[in-house]
Nucleic acid binder design. Structure first.
Lengths: 176, 176
DNA sequence: TAAAACGTTTAGTACATACTAAATAAAATA
DNA sequence: TATTTTATTTAGTATGTACTAAACGTTTTA
């Protein structure tokens, strides 16, 4: 089948929509990202709703979701009442921003959980032999987990310290 | 509130269950991972069902899900008919295995999508000026995406080539 | 001031899916 | 061979949530 540019745009929109769904975001959020990624011009809510054939309410909530994740941004047109949106930056900027945000939040959360349970563990004094074995078993696991968290944090900081992370910087990474 | 070792185990099981849910896996799968992570001994399906207070059917399907992701493994007890399971390795081994599997699959999928659409794009000959602008706009985006994919692949290969990835290796990573 | 043009919120629904209980299958024991 | 023990599969249910249509609120225009 001979495809025109609009068919290709559809394929990409749907593929990104599916990818979003797979990662626990809504399909429409992904489709919107794809639509704006492959649109030369900023689009209004109505245009987006019409193009994706979904309700305007969905566009409204999903576009603000994308805005909060810094995937898209509002663009003001002189003398226009409508809200226009466009993709916020390059794919690289958007994806690395999202990933490092998620990574940071997740690391913080895991640290919190294990530091709390670690404190609780320290407050226990084992009475039986069995209890003492349990406690030291837990301590071993905690040491393992701490090592894991530290490594994740090391990697994340390597990225964040780099300030502006670019593909060029990535290629410079070496394991010595 | 004074917590005993069982309370702490509960906290950890629930925290890991929630974390699993957040990442699109089932809560019980996460709870099972937590349960076995903090159990000195392998456990049978019945024991796990009783401990988590869920149906045996759920344990059966979820434990095999974890097995397929190499999070847990079967352990054979001499002269026992029940199936026993234990965690497959250290947290580090389990998590890096899962992450690199997901990353690899996802990169392959994205490559596939864009290589297909890239071919479709090459088959188009623009007639109007507008069409030609669209085509070259798409080509720019594709170049961006390819750069992104290449960087992701570079990072992944760095990890895979390392063979046995350890926290010690991670700390050796430098950006020069 | 009335009407029109927008964006957001809400009430209702449709759908996917995780879970339970029960049926089934398979293997071991008596 | 019949019974018991175990794991898996299935049918049904409950729950969460993405989505639509419509109501609402706000701003602009006539």
């Amino acid at each position: 089948m001979k495809k025109d540019i609009e068919d290709i745009r559809n394929d990409l929109i749907n593929a990104i929509g599916e990818k979003a769904e797979k990662f626990g975001f809504s399909r429409i959020a992904g489709q919107l990202e794809g639509l704006l990624l492959f649109s030369k011009r900023p689009m209004s809510l109505d245009e987006m709703a019409e193009r994706l054939e979904v309700s305007k309410g969905s566009i409204s909530t999903n576009i603000r979701f994308l805005e909060s994740w810094k995937v898209v941004k509002k663009v003001y047109h002189r003398g226009a009442r409508k809200n226009f949106y466009e993709i916020r930056g390059s794919i690289w900027e958007i994806e690395t921003e999202i990933m490092s945000t998620i990574a940071k939040d997740e690391i913080d959360r895991v640290k919190q959980i294990f530091s709390n349970s670690g404190k609780d563990l320290k407050n226990i004094k084992g009475k039986t032999k069995e209890e003492n074995e349990d406690i030291s078993f837990f301590e071993e696991r905690f040491a393992e987990i701490n090592e894991y968290i530290e490594s994740a944090e090391y990697l994340l900081n390597l990225f964040l310290k780099q300030g502006e992370i670019t593909p060029t910087v990535i290629k410079k990474i070496k394991i010595s």
